[in-house]
Amino acid sequence: MSPLSLLARLGRLALGALAAVGRVALFAISTFTHMLRPPYYPREFALSLLQIGWLSLPVVGLTAVFTGGALALQIYAGGARFNAEAVVPQIVAIGMVRELGPVLVGLMIAARVTSSIAAEIATMKVTEQIDALVTLSTNPMQYLVAPRVLAALITVPLLVGIGDVIGIAGGYAVAVHNLDFNAAAYLKNTVDFLEPLDVISSLVKGAFFGVIAATMGCYYGMQSGRGAQGVGSATKSSVEAAAVLILAANFILTGVFFSL
């Protein structure tokens, strides 16, 4: 391959990537404008709150409790190398609240909610239900997309908050029952060490991750190709995009909150 054709190929790839970013950005802007103007669909919104928030609690809770417990064991074992076993409560708290809580909840939401939204909307697309909505004078952006993204914006920060608490509780349980930490001292160290900014950053990350997860599910669902393969491809792409964007957003938000 000549240098010129290689350059042309790279250029096409770059243009394609930029066009994709542009399409997603326009979709996100359109979603937010549709959230603000009537008609509103309270039933769809309530169902989305249930699906995204309430029904995600078990998987979020289990992820957080096991991660908190494993974190306590790791910090204890690692800290023992330089006589720093006592920092387990502080590191579990900061690790869960600043990083692991929001990121793991975000990724679990990407796995559970993004895939579900993408598959549902893609199936509606290939079975002409989206066209049927339009012919029934109902805007799919307002009926399908806006309620889901708004529900994720509200519920995922709450899930992150709950995940943070359960993760710390997991670390506490392991530290107190397996590593002989004093229960009261563990709790005091946890509370004393956490700062308001830690909690705020966790919840703000949750809001961003929720919007990313729901928007990617809706976007890829609405863009789905035909047939079962189209639905499968939309679902796979939505989860991949949501997971990568959540991790990238986490890096940027961590920088904004703690390094600037």
Binding site: L47, T127, E128, Q129, A132, V134, T135, S137
Partner: peptide, 21 residues
Amino acid sequence: DRDAFLARFGMLFQGGALFDS
């Protein structure tokens, strides 16, 4: 008005396109 325009139409889709939910 788009809504008024669409309100003049009814459509039977090939697969029914009924809303599953």
